[in-house]
């Protein structure tokens, strides 16, 4: 039964790993172009496990920025993880002790959060470990291959792979939006705000845009569609 949780996590993590493989391939290419070695690029992916934050971090390194700038950039782009971590902390199984929480927190990414949040039952440590393990494997391998092999894949393949993760996001949000009008509401409002930000305030960073849109639409949904607690 325990082993099953790990395997279940791994199987739920396969689409994430495939998506990561293609996205981090691009990160590997970018990092080497910015002057990092193959190993440094791979180490960044292993220790950070985040796309936008890493790309911005490489920019800071390449431009010889200060450590203060590095911290500020990471805080701004990655602060959404704190919201996700808080959200997930409410749905953990009782077997999630502090050391296990500290271990699993390493792997809270947009995608892992998305899949975990979609689970009906409380989250078990092994389930999260399995998902994080396979996702990290994909992320680091993709970085290594991209940094090492550069542009071996034809452009038609790498560009099409750019849609993998977004396709997965749609698969996470559409079925519940179909079932619950409140989720349809939050998804639609957030998407409209995001389009608005993109074209009206193009200088706003991607991380900030997501935070603003998500917080506003979730506040509206919580106000207009309060749910009766089932737990």
């Amino acid at each position: 039964m325990r082993k099953n949780d790990f395997l279940k996590g791994m199987s739920h993590g396969i689409p994430i790993a495939l998506g990561y493989l293609s996205v981090s391939f691009g990160f590997g290419i970018t990092a080497v172009k910015a002057g990092l070695s193959v190993w440094e690029a791979s180490l960044i992916s292993l220790t950070n496990l985040t796309s936008a934050g890493q790309a911005a971090g490489v920019d800071v390194i390449a431009s010889n920025g200060t450590l203060f700038e590095m911290i500020l950039v990471q805080l701004t782009i990655n602060i959404r993880y704190a919201l996700m971590a808080l959200s997930l902390s409410q749905r953990l199984h009782t077997s999630f002790t502090l050391p296990k929480r500290l271990l699993a927190s390493y792997g809270i990414t947009d995608e892992i959060f998305g899949v975990c949040a979609g689970q009906e039952s409380p989250l078990k440590p092994l389930y999260m470990y399995g998902m994080i393990f396979i996702a990290t494997l994909g992320w680091v391998m993709g970085t290594f291959l991209g940094a090492y092999a550069g542009e071996l894949l034809p452009a038609s393949v790498t560009s099409a792979l750019g849609i993998v993760l977004y396709g997965m996001f749609l698969a996470i949000i559409i079925p519940p939006a179909r079932k619950e009008r409140s989720i349809l509401f939050v998804v639609a409002v957030s998407a409209i705000l995001s389009i608005f930000c993109k074209y009206i305030f193009p200088s706003l960073s991607g991380g900030f845009t997501v935070i603003i849109c998500a917080v506003i639409s979730a506040i509206l949904a919580a106000t207009f569609f309060p749910r009766e607690d089932e737990a």
Binding site: A117, I173, I183, A214, S217
Partner: peptide, 10 residues
């Protein structure tokens, strides 16, 4: 609601 809002905006 946050997860759905985040994924949608992303």
């Amino acid at each position: 609601y946050i997860p759905y809002a985040v994924l949608s905006a992303m």
